[in-house]
Design a protein around this nucleic acid. Structure first.
Lengths: 135, 135
DNA sequence: CCTTACCCTCACGTTAACGTCAATTTAAGG
DNA sequence: CCTTAAATTGACGTTAACGTGAGGGTAAGG
C-alpha cells in the first residue's frame, strides 16, 4: 500500500523526449521549442534531455493553457508566477485576473461566432430562396 | 423621381483608392494587396487606380466574407464563381455548400469556445477556493 | 564492425494579412 | 510654375508556433 511505490510503477520518475512526445502527441521539435521559450528546462545526461515529473506537470499546464487559448508567452508568465512562490495569494490573484480577462475575451469571441453564424444562415436563406422553384 | 439620377448624386460612379479606404476604414495598402490577390481589378487612368461601383460592390462582398471568417483565398474562389455566370443555379449551389460547411466549422468553433469558458471557470473556482479565507 | 534507432544543434522555411519604409510620379491648387 | 498632397511600385519586416532538412553524435543488438 505504499503510494509512492505504486506510482513509481505507473508513472516513471524520468521521461525521454519521445516518451513525452508520444504521450501528449507532440513532435520532439515542439518540446525543444517549448524549451527555447522557457516553458520547460529538463536536465541533461550529456546532451540528451531528461524530463522530470515536474517537467511533465508543467507541460500539462502548458497544454491546458493552449486549449483555453492562451499564447505561449502568456503561459510562460503564468508559470513563472506560480514558481515565484507557489500558493502565494498575490500571485494567484494575478492569475485569476488574467483568467477572468480571458473569459471575457472568449465570451466576446463567442458572440462574434454567433453573429457570423446568423449572418451566414441569413445569406443561405436568401440563396436558397433564389434556388427554390416554388419561390 | 429618377432613380438613377438620385443614386448618381449619392453614390459616385467612380472611386479613388482613398475614397474606398476611408469609406471602409482600410489602408490603401490593403486595397492594393487585395488587388494582388485578384479580389479587385480597378481600371487605370495612367497609373492611378479607378474603382468602379462594381469594384466597390466586390469589396463589400470581400469584407462581408471576412466578417464571417472566410480567408481571402476562399473569398476569391467564391467571387470568381459568381463572375462565371451570375445567377447560375449551379454556382449558387456550390457557394451554398461552402456556406453550410463554414457554418459547421463555426458551430464547432463555438463549442470549442464554450468548452474553454467552462474550463476556465472551473479553474477560477478552484483558485478562488484557495483564496477564500472561509475555506 | 555495421546497422538501426534515437538524440542533438543549427538554421532557414511556412502561412496570413497586411505594415512599413523608400524612391518616384502624378494630380490638384494657388 | 511651384508646392504640397496623394498615388505608385517594389521589397523587406512582422507575428506565432512550429516544420523541415542538414549534418553529426551515441548506444544497443546482431
Amino acid at each position: 500500500m505504499n503510494q509512492s511505490a505504486e506510482i513509481a510503477e505507473i508513472v516513471p520518475r524520468v521521461f525521454t523526449i519521445s516518451d513525452l512526445s508520444s504521450e501528449f502527441e507532440l513532435t520532439t521539435r515542439t518540446l525543444r521549442f517549448y524549451e527555447t521559450r522557457g516553458l520547460l528546462e529538463p536536465r541533461r545526461r550529456g546532451q540528451t534531455r531528461l524530463y522530470s515529473r515536474r517537467d511533465r506537470a508543467r507541460l500539462k499546464l502548458v497544454l491546458q493553457g493552449k486549449r483555453v487559448g492562451f499564447s505561449l508567452t502568456d503561459i510562460k508568465e503564468m508559470l513563472d508566477l506560480y514558481d515565484l512562490k507557489d500558493g502565494q495569494a498575490t500571485q494567484l490573484r494575478v492569475s485569476l485576473k488574467r483568467f477572468k480577462e480571458r473569459i471575457g475575451d472568449l465570451e466576446r469571441q463567442k458572440i462574434d461566432v454567433e453573429e457570423a453564424i446568423t449572418d451566414l444562415n441569413r445569406t443561405c436563406q436568401i440563396v436558397e430562396g433564389m434556388l427554390d422553384p416554388g419561390s
